[in-house]
Design a protein around this nucleic acid. Structure first.
Length: 271
DNA sequence: ATATCCACCTGGCGGC
DNA sequence: TGCCGCCAGGTGGATA
C-alpha cells in the first residue's frame, strides 16, 4: 500500500476538490473490498464535504452525517476525474460531486476499505492506534519507552501501529539504514540515543517522501494520476545485493515478519 | 499482553 | 507462448 506519505499525498490532492463541494451520490461497482463497502456510505446523497483528514493510513472525509473512512490497502489509489470518464478495471467506487467531477477509488487487490464512522465517535479500527509520526506525540523518548517490553526485531516494532502509525515496509527499511541500526536488533537493546536518532530519521524520511509526491513502485499515483518521485531517493529498499551507497558493501536482503528487509552489514552493525 | 503465521486479491516477473 | 511459483506499498484475526 501506500504508506503514510502516499496517503497524505492523496489527501492533499483530493481535499481541494472535495472541501466545500457536494457529494451528490455514490456509485459502487464492486462492494467487496477488504470488508463490504459500508451501507451508510452507499446511501449518501447531497452531502457537503466539510473536511478531508488523515489518521494513520486512513482518510476521513467528513460530511454532516458522519465520516467516510477510506483505506487504500496495498494497491489502492484515488483520483479526481470528470464524472463522464469511463471507469477502468478495478474502479470500484465513485463519489459523484456536484461540479461534474468524481472522486474515484481504484484498487486491484481489494485490500482497501470504505467504511463509516458516526459523528463524535471513533471507528473501532482507529481506537487502538499509536501516535502520528509527524507530530510531537512521537519522539525518541516515547519510542524508547515502547521498546522496553519488546524483544522483537526493531523493524517489526517500528511497523507496529500500536507503537507509531504509518511506517510501512519501505520507510522502515530506509529509516533503519539512515539511523545505522540493524533491522534485526531486539528492540529492548536499543539505547535512548539510538531511539532518538531513529525517531528523527522516521520523521525526516516521511516528510521528504511527502514533498516528493510519495513513492511509486508500480501503481501508486496522486489525485491527478501522477507518480511519486521518492523512489529515486530510496537508499536500500529494493536494492538487495547492490552496493551500499555509503561504503559499497553489497546490501543484505532477508525476511523479517514475511517482509523483505534490506540493510548494509557494514553500516548497520549488530549491537 | 506478546509473538507467529495466515488470510484476503490481482498482477507482474522470472524460469522452464 | 504458456504455465507455475513467487513476490508486492497492509493489517486484522486466529493461535500458542
Amino acid at each position: 500500500m501506500p504508506e503514510l506519505p502516499e496517503v497524505e499525498v492523496s489527501r492533499l490532492g483530493i481535499a481541494p476538490a472535495l472541501e466545500g463541494n457536494l457529494i451528490e451520490r455514490v456509485i459502487v461497482r464492486q462492494p467487496m473490498l477488504r470488508w463490504p463497502v459500508a451501507a451508510e456510505v452507499i446511501a449518501l446523497q447531497q452531502q457537503p464535504v466539510q473536511a478531508v483528514r488523515r489518521r494513520a493510513k486512513y482518510l476521513l472525509i467528513d460530511v454532516p452525517q458522519g465520516s467516510i473512512i477510506v483505506h487504500l490497502g496495498m494497491s489502492g489509489h484515488l483520483k479526481i476525474v470528470p464524472s463522464s470518464t469511463p471507469p477502468l478495471k478495478h474502479d470500484h467506487v465513485d463519489w459523484v460531486l456536484a461540479d461534474g467531477r468524481s472522486l474515484r477509488l481504484n484498487d486491484s487487490r481489494r485490500f482497501g476499505a470504505v467504511l463509516w464512522q458516526d459523528p463524535l465517535q471513533s471507528h473501532v479500527l482507529l481506537t487502538a492506534l499509536g501516535p502520528e509520526p509527524l507530530t510531537d506525540d512521537f519522539d525518541g523518548a516515547l519510542l524508547f519507552e515502547r521498546c522496553q517490553s519488546r524483544s522483537s526485531a526493531i523493524k517489526l516494532v517500528l511497523m507496529d501501529n500500536h507503537v507509531v502509525v504509518g511506517v510501512g515496509n519501505i520507510y522502515a527499511n530506509e529509516a533503519l539504514f539512515k539511523a545505522r541500526i540493524r533491522p534485526t536488533t531486539p528492540a529492548r537493546q536499543l539505547s535512548l540515543a539510538q531511539c532518538t536518532v531513529l525517531a528523527a530519521v522516521v520523521k525526516q524520511t516521511l516528510a521528504a517522501a511527502i514533498t516528493q509526491g510519495g513513492t511509486t513502485l508500480k501503481d501508486f499515483s496522486d489525485a491527478s494520476g501522477k507518480a511519486g518521485y521518492f523512489k529515486q531517493e530510496l537508499l536500500v529498499y529494493g536494492r538487495g545485493g547492490q552496493p551500499c551507497l555509503h561504503c559499497h558493501t553489497p546490501l543484505d536482503e532477508i525476511r523479517l515478519g514475511q517482509r523483505s528487509t534490506v540493510f548494509c552489514p557494514q553500516c548497520q552493525p549488530t549491537p
